[in-house]
Design a protein around this nucleic acid. Structure first.
Lengths: 200, 200
DNA sequence: AATTGGACACTTCCCAGAGAAGTGTCAACA
DNA sequence: TGTTGACACTTCTCTGGGAAGTGTCCAATT
């Protein structure tokens, strides 16, 4: 079984990231200490460096894992309502908003404008995360609701991502209410034809 | 003419704010010095303190004036196209985006998430600015295009403001292209009825 | 009467230097 | 292989003293 080593390794990796997440969550990334991280998991500093070549790599991996979790949550929100676009959007947006409410990492991911001293990667990475979330959602919607007009779909997905990020920064009354409004808005865009007329 | 004093006073006030704006624009608010500001305009420190009781008051006034200018620009963008909703939105959003591109104050106004060390007021005030911009735009649209459904209008205005702010943070290819996309999106929301059906 | 310059107490910034603590690497060891 | 201790190097952190900034008061000036 040549996989044994790998399994141990990824297990260690997960435990390291768990510990790192906890430390970052309540003391911030710059207060994270490599020595403390190693001892928290019960390994030497060297094995930590064997897994992550630098502290920056830890931040990078932490960021990536959190992003993936977020995207998985969104997908699950969509999956739960394949027959109802509005409910699907509401579930996904609601999930993201509540997650961001208590997860400082996710929050920073979507809001960092640069130079806020948090993680250097976030500056560059937040745009990448944005694009990734948009691309994934777009692909999903294309597959799940092929009847939606492509132009409308693209605008709707972009609006969904941006409005969600906006509500993370400028929070509304409650995540649920925000999600409801965003879902309403997104559905209106998605089902538009671009040939509507003003009533007279 | 009892107004003479007042005129002089507001004139002085404007000149002080002009000088303050220039100083803040390239050195930042915290590098602004009251003594420097006074001498730049050619008055003593005392007359400056007679006009603005504190440095904080200068920041407040500066912020307020910039916000008003921004709103005026938006109104003009709308006024220039009272017959064409799409063009009106495009003009206003385009104006705001290009303004924010070179005006650090406006940028901070719509993006500050708190504790970025810039101005303490911005933290609280950005939400207020947000609300004010939304309220003003909503009132204008209600008056200019009364045929738009109220629910759709409210969602459209909210989306317009939030999407514009989003494009300030996560800039697209160009302000014009961003404005075009936002206008397209906003028009689709504004002209929606909420009773659309998915094509089959 | 308004404006000014000087003087004031108080707070904050800035700048060294010293010491501690953290990072990343290496080699000896179990 | 993984652990341990030592290493050079960089980055915090604290300190104290001097400079500079804020906000206030007042006598002098116009």
């Amino acid at each position: 079984m040549p996989r044994f080593r790998e399994t141990v390794r990824t297990l260690l990796r997960e435990r390291l990231l768990d510990a790192a997440y906890e430390a970052v969550a309540d003391r911030g990334f710059d207060k994270l200490r490599m020595a403390h991280l190693a001892s928290a998991v019960g390994v030497s500093r060297q094995t930590l460096y064997a897994e992550f070549p630098s502290k920056e790599a830890v931040g990078e991996a932490l960021f990536q894992r959190e992003l993936e979790r977020c995207l998985v949550g969104i997908q699950e929100g969509l999956d739960a309502h394949r027959d109802d676009l509005r409910a699907a959007v509401r579930a996904s947006v609601g999930f993201t908003l509540t997650l961001a409410g208590r997860n400082p990492l996710i929050k920073a991911m979507l809001t960092s404008t640069g130079e806020d001293g948090l993680l250097p990667y976030l500056t560059t990475r937040s745009a990448a995360a944005f694009d990734l979330a948009t691309a994934m959602t777009d692909a999903y919607v294309t597959e799940a609701w092929p009847a939606i007009d492509p132009v409308a779909r693209e605008l709707a997905v972009d609006a969904a991502v941006r409005l969600t990020a906006s509500h993370i920064v400028q929070a509304g009354p409650s995540p649920e209410e925000s999600a409801r409004r965003i879902a309403d808005t997104v559905v209106r865009i998605a089902l538009s034809t671009g040939r509507e007329q003003l009533p007279r």
